[in-house]
């Protein structure tokens, strides 16, 4: 049994590591070298692919677009979602329940269901080929999960804390940012990581709304490299590495939080 366990664990580790290793090694090879030497080490440590991808493509533009879209989508989703979570938690009567159900129902609707009317709407508003359009749609789409996670957490804050603060004359807004937010920080952080990974990696909405190079995000840009470079794997993988670098770096340092955050997102989503 112990031997079987060891063999299986090692095999799966290799299945994860080998493709990743080869991706990294391939970025240092030329196209012809990939053909002659698929799995081996590159003959020299050449950064040619990195140089050519930055000179041939507006890589830094794509990178910046991804940063802007992810940053504003995540922070605004968290802001609006935490306000709603607070409101739903504190509200009397059935309104809160209805609002909460309205949002959680949204988790059941796959993105492909409303993408056609959504495309039409964004087009009519003149928001195609704009980062603002992407951000607004991202917020609307991820709010249900965020509200679900944060509300669950805020509900566990003892009611007596709010009662005491009310007696001391605190306003609802003050209680929101002085009590509810600090006490639900773990769930907000988890949601933040989950949303970061999701928005950074999203392909569907950029694919629908963006055609102009100035507004492309990294996943969409990568997808179009495929048409341009076909099976030029060294260049494609250089793109893959650059696009994944921020998430990989963050994962190296914040592993536990990534795992907790993405798990919270998947359990609730």
């Amino acid at each position: 049994m112990r031997i079987i366990r060891f063999i299986l664990l090692t095999l799966f580790a290799l299945v994860v590591i080998i493709p990743m290793m080869i991706v990294v090694l391939t970025t240092f090879k030329s196209t012809s070298e990939v053909f002659s030497n698929i799995l081996g080490l590159p003959s020299s440590l050449s950064f040619k692919n990195y140089v050519s991808i930055f000179t041939e493509q507006p890589m830094s533009r794509y990178f910046l677009n991804s940063v802007i879209v992810t940053f504003f989508s995540v922070t605004l989703t968290l802001l609006f979602a935490s306000l709603i979570a607070y409101s739903v938690t504190r509200m009397f009567g059935w309104i809160g329940v209805i609002i909460f159900s309205l949002f959680t129902l949204g988790m059941m609707v796959p993105a492909q269901v409303n993408m056609i009317p959504l495309y039409q709407l964004v087009y009519n508003l003149g928001l195609t080929n704009s980062l603002l359009g992407l951000i607004l749609v991202n917020i609307a789409v991820t709010m249900p999960v965020a509200i679900f996670i944060i509300t669950g957490f805020m509900k566990s804050i003892p009611k007596s804390l709010f009662e005491a603060a009310t007696i001391d004359g605190a306003s609802e807004f003050k209680m929101y940012y002085k009590i509810a937010i600090p006490l639900s920080l773990p769930s907000i952080a988890a949601t933040a990581i989950f949303l970061c990974v999701m928005h950074w990696n999203d392909l569907l909405y950029p694919l629908l709304f963006i055609t102009n190079n100035d507004y492309k995000t990294l996943p969409l840009a990568l997808l179009e490299f495929q048409g341009e470079y076909a099976t030029n794997y060294p260049l494609l993988f250089t793109g893959v590495l650059i696009a994944s670098a921020p998430m990989i770096l963050a994962y190296l340092f914040l592993q536990r939080y990534f795992i907790a955050g993405i798990t919270a997102g998947s359990v609730k989503g």
């Binding site: 990696n201 990568l222 696009a243």
Partner: peptide
């Protein structure tokens, strides 16, 4: 692998 984009 979970943290990578589907495109990657």
């Amino acid at each position: 692998p979970t943290i990578l984009s589907s495109v990657s």
